[in-house]
């Protein structure tokens, strides 16, 4: 088994990452933006896994675990913020939360 060329894996990671990025750029709904960020993180994790499997090392998977941890923390804080924003502004539109400007 395991005869997958790694550039295929990296290209898959790249495609997923681009999709997530497009989504972040086009969405105004903050929950969708959060979901898109999750997609991008996941793609980054995939790139690590691919690299790890090329060298047959555990480090790739460990990096993935750290990304996972970070994503979990980010989602919890992000969701709390979303709740507050919705509570205050009665909308999920990020453009409405634009008071912090220079």
């Amino acid at each position: 088994m395991n005869a997958i060329p790694i550039e295929y894996g990296l290209i898959l990671a790249g495609i997923l990452f681009m999709l997530g990025m497009v989504s972040v750029l086009i969405r105004r709904n903050i929950i969708f933006m959060l979901i898109s960020v999750e997609i991008m993180l996941n793609a980054a994790g995939l790139a690590f896994i691919v690299a790890g499997s090329k060298w047959t090392q555990a480090d790739g998977q460990i990096m993935f675990i750290f990304i996972l941890t970070m994503a979990a923390a980010e989602v919890s804080v992000g969701l709390a913020l979303i709740l507050q924003i919705y509570h205050q502004l009665k909308t999920l539109d990020t453009d409405a939360a634009n008071r912090m400007k220079g």
Binding site: V24, L25, A97, N98, M100, K101, G102
Partner: peptide
């Protein structure tokens, strides 16, 4: 520079 700080998050991402 302050005009770039417009508070719209999508601009920052861009």
């Amino acid at each position: 520079i302050a005009t770039t700080q417009n508070g719209v998050m999508r601009w920052y991402v861009l």
